[in-house]
């Protein structure tokens, strides 16, 4: 069965989308028999082209989407039950422009997961928020700003602060650096690595950017049309990719 040192484990997961009725009915198998696991303190990079099922895998691992079949466990228990412990699982999502509510001050955004967990007002967590902002390399008094006053890199740092503030065991980064400038990307990737060393969370790093994955991931999984075609430690994968599709991906960069 599932080993306890794995924070998240997907076993034989299928996700099927259907649309339309009658002759217009379309069936899309976004995930076919996906097996993957993420250990504490480990980053699993998930790569593949658009439409390969990477983001669906992320949504299933986060409990946002119920798999059609197969099991998802979090710390050895079914994910559905684990979802009742708010803040144990977090995510940093794609678009820095829409990752923060434009109407809320940074402080309120970062405090929100804590407030959701203990039911107190966001203001009660001011000190925790300022400490967290410092940890992600932002000045603490940024908490009074609105998102439109921040740069893309700063916004993504705020999104990371929001994800980390509940000390989660598992974080999904879904194209978390793809929309950023290359120099800012490197800073954010460094930050993710440092914070992981500090907090020991397991993470699923979804990206189509092989260079970014190489930088942060311990292991790499390659997805093609809903299937994981290869999983290997990062160093092995980038030196000797086994699957022909992996080779094609690497050649393309």
């Amino acid at each position: 069965m599932s080993t306890p040192e794995n924070v998240v484990e997907l076993r034989d997961v299928d996700a099927v989308f259907t649309s339309g009725r009658g002759r217009a009915r379309r069936v899309l198998r976004a995930m076919r028999g996906v097996d993957l696991h993420v250990a504490a303190g480990e980053t699993l990079g998930l790569v593949g082209e658009s439409g390969s099922g990477k983001s669906t895998t992320g949504a299933v691992a986060l409990g946002l989407r119920r798999p059609t079949s197969g099991t998802v466990t979090f710390l050895g228990e079914p994910l559905r039950r684990a979802r009742r412990r708010p803040g144990a699982i977090q995510a940093v999502l794609q678009n820095p422009h829409w990752s923060l509510n434009p109407r809320l001050r940074v402080g309120a955004t970062v405090a929100e997961p804590l407030a959701a967990r203990d039911g107190r007002s966001p203001n009660a967590h001011r000190d925790a928020v300022r400490r967290m902002l410092e940890q992600v390399g932002l000045p603490p008094d940024l908490d009074a700003r609105h998102p439109h006053e921040l740069s893309g890199g700063q916004r993504q740092r705020v999104a990371i602060a929001r994800a980390l503030i509940t000390e989660p065991r598992f974080i999904v980064f879904d194209e978390a650096v793809s929309a950023l400038d290359v120099s800012v990307q490197a800073q954010i990737l460094n930050l993710i690595r440092d914070l992981q060393e500090l907090h020991g969370f397991g993470s699923l790093f979804i990206s189509h950017d092989l260079a970014a994955v190489r930088y942060v991931a311990h292991r790499v999984a390659v997805m093609l049309r809903g299937e994981i075609v290869e999983t290997a430690p990062t160093s092995v994968f980038y030196d000797v990719p086994r699957h022909p599709y992996s080779r094609r991906l690497l050649e393309a960069t």
């Binding site: 946002l64 412990r85 955004t109 929100e112 929001r162």
Partner: peptide, 16 residues
């Protein structure tokens, strides 16, 4: 929007 998804993942209640 991502901020709504992020709030849902964090366990923020629907009415909130």
């Amino acid at each position: 929007r991502d901020y709504v998804t992020a709030a849902r993942i964090s366990g923020v209640s629907a009415p909130r």
